[in-house]
Each structure stands twice: as structure tokens, then as C-alpha cells.
Design a binder for these strands. Sequence first.
DNA 1: GCATAATACAAGTTGACACACAGTACCTAG
DNA 2: CTAGGTACTGTGTGTCAACTTGTATTATGC
Lengths: 115, 115
Amino acid sequence: MNMFIKGNQVRGHLETMVLSVLESEESHGFDIVKRLEAAGDGSLNLKEGTVYPVLYRLEDAKLLKAKWEENDSGRKGPRRKVYSLTAKGRKQLEAGRNEWKAFVNVVGGIVGGLS
Amino acid sequence: MNMFIKGNQVRGHLETMVLSVLESEESHGFDIVKRLEAAGDGSLNLKEGTVYPVLYRLEDAKLLKAKWEENDSGRKGPRRKVYSLTAKGRKQLEAGRNEWKAFVNVVGGIVGGLS
DNA sequence: GCATAATACAAGTTGACACACAGTACCTAG
DNA sequence: CTAGGTACTGTGTGTCAACTTGTATTATGC
């Protein structure tokens, strides 16, 4: 009964998904993965090794900025790299949402039953 | 102001799209491309070189069957290979539609704005 | 016969994602 | 104090579907 969304199907949408997750709240890589997983309710099957490269690409493209958060508060684990949207990233998110809508309309129009 | 849907974004959905197009009416490769293009209203940018391999895959997987239609009616062009859905293909189309719905729900839930 | 249109197919390239690790830091249990 | 678990960040190699471009076949019209 587990329906997994195939990796190929998120191709080209992952970047917008990551930007979306970061819109409401900045966070670090590991947390982003968990938030995406939670949002997908188990049907997304994202690994860190998939998401980190996306983050680098987005940072390179100046859509995200990152700062290191040292571990001085006694929590577990090493330091984290906290990502947040830049102005450019926010603009790109807008564009990505429009692309998403167009995509859903077109593909949905075909797949959803067309005379 | 032409908005093109990026190739990567249809990845993993093209097969279901092709099956959908063939559900209403059997047709041959070149026509399938044109019907997809028409359905996408110019925003899909599919080439024959993209669609034919999909058809081979689907035929290999017994989701489509093909028959040659010789050119004896005086129309232009060489003979055509006419594809139609098999029973298995129809079943797969159902599954593909469900996948599509799940995909739209999950990704739409993330991209479309999430608290 | 040459251009053009309709149709099928082939070959090589790309690039985002998958997979499977490797490395670092801290905490707790025994 | 050390073993194991958990929280993180990385990396390197492969895959495979989609892209690009080009070619082959048949018929019509000039």
C-alpha cells in the first residue's frame, strides 16, 4: 500500500520544492530533508545525498544564502549550515510557482482525460 | 512571453501522457507528437526524437501494440506505424493517473504554499 | 529530377537525481 | 573511557530519460 513517488517524477521540481520549504522558515540541510519527507507523508523518498547537491546549486545561483551555526547550545550533533532565501530566491520561487501551475494545467489536461 | 515547460519537468510523466493520448484514439508516432503539442498549446516542446523512444519502451513493455499501415491511399509520406493500447496498457494508464494525482497532491502541497 | 512535406528512426550527449558510502561532532550508557 | 547512537554535512559514481541533430523513405507538385 505504500505508494512512492518515483524519483524521475520530481525531476525539475525539486528546486522549487526546496525554495518553498525555505520560504516559511530558514533551516539547515538535514531539517529540509525531514520537512520535505513530512510534507510528502512518506511518499517522497528523498535522501540527503539528493538534497545537498540541490542546495549547493541554489546557493551557487545566489538563490539561497547560507550561514554556519556553531554548536554552542548543548544540542547534539555538529555545526549546521542554515539556508535562507535571498531576494533573488524569492523571485525565483514566484517563477517556480507559475511554472508549476502551467505544468499542472498542461499535463493534467492531457493525463486527466482529454477528448 | 512564451512559457516553455522544461524537459526535466515532464520526466517520468511522458509515458502516462502518451498512454492518455492513445486512450481516445489510436494513432501513429508523428501524429502523437502533434496531438501532445496541440494539447500543450505550444508550451510543450516535444520532438520526434523524444517521443519515438517512449513508444519503443511502451511497446517493449507490451503496453502498446503497433501495426504498420501501408501507404496505398495516395497520401504523402511513407508508411505509418499505428499504435494502440493493450489491455495491460489500459491498466497502466489507470495506475499512471493515480500516480499523477498523488504527485500533484504532494508536490502541490509543498509548492503551493505550506505553513 | 528537384524541392518540399510527411513520417520514421538512429546516435551521441547531457544532467538531475539515486545510491551508497565517508566523515565529523556530540551525548549517553555501561 | 569507550561504544554506540544520533545529528549532520559531504562526495563520487552510475543511470536513464529526455535533448539534439541528422538521416532515410515515400509521395506530390513544379
